[in-house]
Design a protein around this nucleic acid. Structure first.
Lengths: 240, 240
DNA sequence: GGTGATTGAATTGCATGCATCATGTAGCCG
DNA sequence: CGGCTACATGATGCATGCAATTCAATCACC
C-alpha cells in the first residue's frame, strides 16, 4: 500500500470571513465528491486545517460533519478516512433509495402544485437536451437535480437528509462503478414516467414507477460491477 | 432575576476518564429522551459543560451530535434548543417510518436466521407479559426493542440510523401525544403478525403488515393528537 | 545481515483564551 | 411617564496550548 493519502490536494483557502466551519465543510465535501480526495484518503485534522488555511477547530467540525454524513468513516485510532463505497454498500444504498424515492414520488404526487410540475418539466427538458448531446456530466448533474427536486416536492423535510446522503455516497462510488452511457435515455424516460404520474396526481403509480426506476438502477449496477456474493449481509454489528 | 439557563436538571457528572465527548452525548441524549430536558430547553455550550462537569469542547460536540440527530434544532443566533416535535412532525416521521419499517421487515424476512427469530420470539413473550400486566412503560420499552431488533435483522446498516433517529424523535414527542393504553394489545398482535411473516420468510407479507402497523399508529396518533398550534408559551423568568 | 528496541513525528481529545455579537435590563432624557 | 440608549451578561465561533498515544523508521545489537 502506498501512503498516497498523506498529500491532500491543493484546496483554495477559505476566504469568507464568516462561517469558517461551513466553508470548510463545503470545500471538503466538494473535494470528496469530485474525487480530488479519493476513497481511503486520510482526513487528519491538522492536515485539513493546513490545506484550508483555517485553524483546527473548524477543520475538526467539518470533518465530523463529513463523517456523520457517511462520506468518511472514523477509524478508531486513525481519524477519519474518505469512505470507500463498495458494491455491497451500493446494494444497501439502493435498497434504501428504492423505498425513499418511492415515498418521495408518492408524496409529491399528492402534494405537488403547478409550479412544482413546471420546474420538473424544465429540468427534464434540459436533461433531454443533455442526453441528446451525449453530455454525460450534464446528464448526471440533471439526473441528480431531478431527484432532488422530486424530494423537495414531497414536502417532508425529514426525507431530504437521508436521500441527500445516499445520493452523495453514490457519487463518490461512481469512481469504480462506471456510468453506462447507454443508460442515459433510459433514465430520462423513467423520469418522464414519474413526472407523468405526478401530473396525474396518481400517487400509487408515482411510487411504483419511482421504485422501479431505482430497482433498475440497482440491477444495472449489480450487473456491471460485480458484487461479492455475500450481499449486504451483517458485516459488523454495533451501534454508532 | 435568575439565570434560567442554569436551570438544567441535575446530571451526574461524567465519570469515565475516557471518551468525554461520548459520555456527554449519551448523558445529554438520555436527559432529553427522559424529558428531564423538556422540548424547548436551551442547550448552551457553557451550561451543558457546567452541568456535566466537562469543558466546553466535549459539550459542544455532544450538542452538535444531538442536533444532527434531530433531537435539538439550531436556532441561528440562540444556539441549540431541544426539539419540539409537533403533530405535524409526527406525521412526517410516520410517513418515513412506514416505508423504512416496511423495508426492514421485508429484508428481515429474506435474511433472518433461526437465532434472530428466537430473539424476536423472546421479546414478544416478554412483551405479552407486560401487556397482560398493564405495564405501560415496559410495553413501550419492549415495543421499541422489537422494532430495533427487527431493523438489525434486516442486515442493512444504513437503515439503522434513520430509524433510530425517528424512534428517538417519537420518544420525545410522547410527552404530548399520549398513547392510548387500549392500543397495547393491538400493537402486540401486529408485532406477532410481523414475526409470523418473518418465520415464513414471506417478504411481501412482512412488508405489508409492517407498513400497516405503522399506518395504524399514525392514524391513532392523528386522531388523538392535538393541533400543532405553536401557542406554547415560553416561560418568562419572574420579574419581581 | 537480521531482529528488536528506541527515538521521533504526528495525531487525537480535551481545555481554555479571546473577540464579536446578540439579548435583555436599567437608567436617563424628552 | 414613556421611549431610547448604554451597559452588563452570556453565548458563539475560532484559535491555540497541552498531554497521552500511536505508528513508523531508524539505529544498535546479536
Amino acid at each position: 500500500m502506498q501512503p498516497d493519502s498523506s498529500r491532500l490536494p491543493e484546496m483554495p483557502p477559505v476566504v469568507l470571513g464568516e462561517a469558517l466551519t461551513e466553508q470548510s465543510y463545503l470545500r471538503l465535501r466538494e473535494a470528496i465528491l469530485q474525487r480530488r480526495l479519493p476513497a481511503g484518503a486520510r482526513l487528519s485534522v491538522p492536515a485539513v486545517a493546513r490545506r484550508l488555511g483555517v485553524s483546527r477547530s473548524p477543520a475538526r467540525e467539518a470533518i465530523a460533519r463529513i463523517a456523520a454524513e457517511g462520506l468518511a468513516t472514523f477509524v478508531p485510532r486513525k481519524g477519519a478516512v474518505v469512505a470507500r463505497i463498495t458494491a455491497a454498500d451500493l446494494l444497501e444504498i439502493y435498497e434504501l433509495r428504492e423505498v425513499l424515492e418511492g415515498l418521495a414520488a408518492r408524496l409529491a404526487a399528492e402534494r405537488i402544485a403547478a409550479d412544482g410540475l413546471a420546474g420538473l418539466r424544465a429540468l427534464l427538458d434540459r436533461h433531454r437536451a443533455a442526453v441528446e448531446d451525449g453530455d454525460v456530466a450534464r446528464h448526471m448533474e440533471l439526473d441528480q437535480a431531478f431527484h432532488r427536486a422530486l424530494r423537495h416536492a414531497a414536502g417532508n423535510r425529514r426525507l431530504l437528509e437521508p436521500l441527500d446522503r445516499l445520493q452523495a455516497q453514490v457519487r463518490i462510488a461512481m469512481d469504480t462503478t462506471h456510468r453506462s452511457p447507454g443508460g442515459m435515455p433510459q433514465a430520462l424516460a423513467e423520469h418522464e414516467e414519474i413526472l407523468a404520474a405526478l401530473r396525474d396526481h396518481d400517487a400509487v403509480r408515482a411510487e411504483a414507477v419511482a421504485r422501479a426506476h431505482i430497482i433498475r438502477l440497482r440491477q444495472s449496477i449489480a450487473s456491471s460491477g460485480d458484487v461479492p456474493a455475500g450481499g449486504a449481509g451483517s458485516s459488523r454489528g454495533g451501534a454508532r
